[in-house]
Design a binder for these strands. Sequence first.
DNA 1: GTTGAACCTCGACTCCAGTTGAGGTCAAGG
DNA 2: CCTTGACCTCAACTGGAGTCGAGGTTCAAC
Lengths: 159, 159
Amino acid sequence: MSPKGANPVPWDHTELSVGEVAARSGVSVSALHFYERQGLITSRRTAGNQRRYRRDVLRRVAFVRVSQRVGVPLARIAEALSTLPDDRAPSVRDWERLSRTWRTELDARIAQLQRLRDDLTDCIGCGCLSLSRCVLANPRDEMGEEGPGPRRLLVDEPG
Amino acid sequence: MSPKGANPVPWDHTELSVGEVAARSGVSVSALHFYERQGLITSRRTAGNQRRYRRDVLRRVAFVRVSQRVGVPLARIAEALSTLPDDRAPSVRDWERLSRTWRTELDARIAQLQRLRDDLTDCIGCGCLSLSRCVLANPRDEMGEEGPGPRRLLVDEPG
DNA sequence: GTTGAACCTCGACTCCAGTTGAGGTCAAGG
DNA sequence: CCTTGACCTCAACTGGAGTCGAGGTTCAAC
């Protein structure tokens, strides 16, 4: 990436502009602005008020994207990232710790979907979806969890 | 459920009011209105403009809730439901067919999350999240899929 | 010293899956 | 008759994760 074409690397070379971070991370500039507003990443400003990022912002952004794939909302990602040191660049241990948190999360989500799949398999056999007889239609698990919607599923009276 | 307490059953007894459907399905009245606007369920109206539902609306609603747990957006659920007969109540075979569709979907989602988990496990070892070296940060799979966000993740140049 | 790409802020808009509230109607009991 | 609770419509709002555009500035090159 020598200075030719549309995007030569200027100044310091250790710091990155928002456009460079966008190109390298695959995240749009507007999303990076947004992440900054949400406290997921931080930047220094130049004299002319332009953002300059430390190179480890790329890992932060990568971590954000991965976490989103796991299904974690930005607010919790921000929370996790806030446990990273603010001054020094995070170490391998730091990322390891964060990744481990999500593994647990992911295991739970997979287990949940597998239960759902098993129930669904049973119900393909029974074809029921009856509110009283069907595990699927009347789940006892994960009540207050997982997004908006009704907090309870009442049972159909027998008969 | 004889006529006593807060909610006696009026009129026909084979048809259900919106409040009854809400109580039996666990879905709020406002959500049922919303589902109707989205074409997920339908109702007849009384002389006084009140909704009356056929009893099989309970299965439709159950199907909607289950489908949401699978992760299918309402628009696609509506699409699936639109393949049901509009006149007669759907048969066991009908529900079976629909459920089978979601099973495939669910299998794919589970497989995807399992891949993600495996990658994450590897990355806990490597602690990398480097945009070039890490499968996690740079996935080749499921590109145009799964929600909003950037459609590509560029690679970090080597070195 | 001017051009043009890249940058800045701010507010408004999108989509999804609903919820909330205002203002009005319907139906049954006392 | 009047009250009460369930019902009706319609519009506006929520929240999450951004996108889009207007209007203005900075910066590197020519």
